[in-house]
Design a protein around this nucleic acid. Structure first.
Lengths: 201, 201
DNA sequence: TCTATCATGTAACCAGTTACATGATTTT
DNA sequence: AAAATCATGTAACTGGTTACATGATAGA
């Protein structure tokens, strides 16, 4: 739909979304992003936030309004969404919800190169991964339970539920992979073990 | 384990891996990466390949050997793995296989902000996504079947099988999400529809 | 003869990360 | 009195993308 966004960083989308609720200064944006746990879904740091706000201003999606001051604290610019910014927010979100993107998770890269490791070692590492995955799963489950206990509507937990589903799928995949490597059909493994035996690393 | 890699781009890992088989010049690397379908697992372009080879040289992981010349074609430098490069390859791969990383897929960001869209529109977009996901799934399945027909060992298809599993999980998740939005429990939706009705966008 | 593929690189630009730098206010 | 948090930003560096620039060889 849109060829290329003037601002590509997804942090910019989050900023547009929060500014559509009410004008804010950057520090307040950082605070609400963290409070809502959006830092788990969208990567950001102090530096990247100021950078992306600058990009949004240059693109005409947000504009600095008043320059506030509370007590002797430093001056701060409050930013508000422009009409173009509101349009961009809608268009961008629609694109992300509708169109799956080809992505490059690190584990996919690792899988595509795993034959560079001897199979016995791969199995050991995959078992270790399984333990770490269990930990990650427990963390996500705890976040969900905690929110439910605080009566947060389920709607605001869908991204964590999505993660949970993907984690469960990965766990099942890794378990199956371990058993396929441990007890390999010859036409499946294609000489993996033999290759590493002949040049003992 | 490793604090921070001198070369962080995963394309660098793929380069180390192929150079561990035999020395090659950059163009040959690009060719084998594409032939093996690694461009589906690791993002790269002509430019980033030359860049990453430069980084690997500076880091001491690969070194230019001979400067070959075939016929009147331009000179080309053949790169080979150094001992440090072989160590880095092993260490890096082990880390990637063992340690899950927190990642930021675009759809997770979209889910965390989806309430900025009216629910009826969200459902429409998710239905469209479902059709596109079916297409993506068919593509992956075709790649797997095609490789099997050519008797490629299953081991070399694990990254595509992983993708297939994740796609199936996403499809099931989106189907369930559509039905939850379409027929919402009030404590789940938390006034989503009402919010958008009161300010008809 | 022209197009695709083989083959090499550089330069300019933009984005993102990290560290630097400052100072007020609130809480312990 | 000290530490944490509120609040702002800039500067330097590094990495990645895109476009520019060149030319040989092989096949249609």
């Amino acid at each position: 739909m849109a060829g290329k966004r003037k601002v590509a960083n997804l942090l910019g989308l989050a900023v547009l979304s929060y500014l559509s609720q009410q004008p804010m200064h950057p520090y307040a944006l950082a605070r609400v992003l963290r409070e809502h746990g959006d830092d788990r879904s969208i990567k950001f740091s102090h530096g990247s936030l100021y950078m992306v706000v600058g990009q949004l201003v240059r693109a005409g999606f947000v504009a600095g309004q008043e320059t506030g001051r509370a007590g002797q604290r430093p001056e701060h610019t409050v930013y508000a969404l422009t009409p173009a910014g509101r349009a961009e927010l809608g268009d961008w979100l629609r694109e992300l919800v509708e169109e799956p993107r080809h992505e490059y998770p690190a584990f996919v890269s690792a899988l595509s190169l795993i034959t560079a490791l001897p199979p016995a070692e791969a199995v050991e590492l995959l078992r270790a991964r399984l333990r770490l995955l269990a930990g990650a799963r427990a963390d996500v489950a705890a976040i969900i339970e905690d929110s439910r206990a605080r009566e947060v509507p389920g709607l605001f937990l869908i991204e964590e539920e999505y993660r949970l589903d993907q984690l469960d799928t990965e766990i099942a995949f890794v378990e199956r992979l371990i058993s396929r490597i441990s007890d390999p059909a010859p036409e499946w493994a294609g000489g993996w073990a033999e290759y590493h035996e002949s040049r003992q690393n």
